[in-house]
Design a protein around this nucleic acid. Structure first.
Length: 438
DNA sequence: AATGCAGACAACCGCACTCCT
DNA sequence: AAGGAGTGCGGTTGTCTGCAT
């Protein structure tokens, strides 16, 4: 059995409170306190629901409440706290003595939101609208990107979604080189020997991306977009992708802790059975380790141990290689597909990327079929046996390339995405997804 | 003076979580 | 353990008021 209902809805009064009702409520609370809202209306002689009494008390009658207009200081506090907390009105109000969450919410909705818009600041992201416009236009590599950004920043959500949902034509791969018209059609997934699929995420996903970009920041939306993109890779193809990095990585590489190293000290890490190879030259020590890795990424024709030379920058407190595991683990599916992710890093020639992945798949196919079979690059991946096509780290035939990984920063941040990606650390740039196949 | 409109804010609604029986 | 009320919270609606036409 549950509790008895707090009131009978049909018999309670609703709407604005009269001074008489306020007086009754105040008298009752001063006599009995606020312990039981359920029984309070009866005690006070009010035809009100207990919930209504509670709201009236907490939002209006409490003696410690301020009722005047918000001061400039309070206004600034609300803006700053909203930027940090979002619409967590109760948390914001807790920092403003005498103000309730309802007060803050109303003041935000009626005054501050409008004021920020007039100042050219997006009230949701708290970023300059011009910056959002540029970010959005540059980061979404789909047709009419400018229109999308314009629509988004003009708060024309439906317009944006309509543009996003515009149907894009499918296209056929010709030796893994898409036609230029296909390139212009947006995000594509490389699949060898079968019609490439144009990524067309569900509307709910697009709404999520849109909301994320509006409410959190543009970078996070890129991360979400990339995760969405990952989910579009067919399971048959995912099974052929490289495994995560092994667990025996140094903690400073895995977790971003400051390495216990002296300035400019250099260490080398070797991990067997992983088909990537990285080397870092001595002269690169003035760079971050990740930059150095990117500059010196090599693409072995056969499987080699993973070699990472890493160090700490002199006179720098930044962690230097903290993002390595997450970035490699997360990017492997895309890089194995020949996708370039990121903007800052040097690019491997496209033909090299494609041929390496092609070679890998060819060799995998060879292993499972008879040696005499043709090395046809056309593979029907959906019909290929998954188990035999799985990536085999360190296998004699493994040959795959990691493409350039663009890293936008080195500061360690926390991420809500299971720590996989950091909005500050990874700058996904979808424009490169289309440029790679152009 | 009557009407329409917009701004401000109080109040309500509905959901999620907690607590009680 | 389960069901239902209590509570907290964010979003939305309703009402009042002042101003313009």
């Amino acid at each position: 059995m549950g509790r008895a209902p707090c009131c009978e809805k049909e018999s309670v009064k609703r709407g604005p409170w009269t001074p008489e009702e306020d007086a009754k409520l105040l008298a009752c609370i001063s006599q009995h306190g606020t312990g039981s809202w359920r029984t309070l209306p009866k005690k006070a002689g009010l035809q009100r629901c207990g919930k209504s009494c509670r709201l009236r008390w907490t939002n209006y009658l409490r003696p410690d409440l301020k009722h005047g207009r918000f001061s400039d200081h309070e206004e600034q506090m609300i803006v700053k706290l909203h930027a940090a907390l979002g619409s967590r009105w109760s948390l914001i109000a807790a920092q403003l003595p005498g103000r309730t969450d309802n007060d803050v919410k109303n003041y935000w909705n009626t005054r501050l939101k409008k004021k920020l818009c007039e100042m050219g600041i997006d009230p949701i992201t708290h970023k300059p609208i011009s910056q959002l416009l540029a970010d959005l236009a540059g980061s979404i590599s789909i047709p009419k990107g400018g229109q999308i950004a314009e629509a988004a920043l003009g708060c024309f959500k439906d317009d944006m979604l309509n543009v996003l949902m515009r149907k894009r034509p499918d296209w056929q791969l010709e030796g893994c080189v898409p036609s230029s018209s296909a390139t212009a059609s947006g995000l594509h997934l490389w699949e060898l020997g079968m019609p490439a699929q144009v990524i067309s995420p569900p509307k709910s996903t697009l709404i999520n991306i849109y909301e994320t970009s509006r409410q959190d920041d543009v970078a996070m939306s890129k991360v979400d977009s990339m995760m969405m993109f990952k989910n579009q890779i067919p399971s048959t193809l995912q099974s052929k992708l490289p495994p995560p990095l092994p667990n025996n990585m140094p903690s400073e590489l895995l977790h971003g802790t400051q390495p216990l190293m002296t300035d400019n000290e250099k260490r080398t890490l070797s991990i067997s059975s992983y088909p990537y190879s990285f080397t870092c030259q001595e002269e690169d020590m003035n760079k971050t380790v990740m930059d150095a890795i990117l500059d010196n990424t090599s693409f072995p024709s056969d499987s080699r141990p993973l070699q990472i030379s890493y160090g700490r920058e002199a006179s720098s407190s930044k962690p230097t290689a903290w993002m390595l595991e997450s970035s490699m683990e997360s990017l492997a599916p895309y890089t194995a597909l020949g996708l370039h992710v990121g903007a800052a890093a040097p690019q491997l020639p496209q033909q090299h990327q494609h041929s390496l992945f092609l070679n890998f798949l060819q060799q995998q196919q060879q292993e499972e079929s008879s040696p005499s079979e043709s090395r046809n690059t056309k593979m029907q991946l959906d019909s290929a046996p998954d188990t035999n096509m799985a990536w085999s780290p360190g296998g004699s035939g493994s040959s795959c390339s990691s493409t350039s990984l663009g890293m936008g920063g080195n500061e360690q941040t926390t991420s809500s995405l299971d720590g996989v990606l950091s909005s500050d650390a990874l700058l996904w740039d979808f424009s490169d997804l289309s440029s790679i196949i152009s």
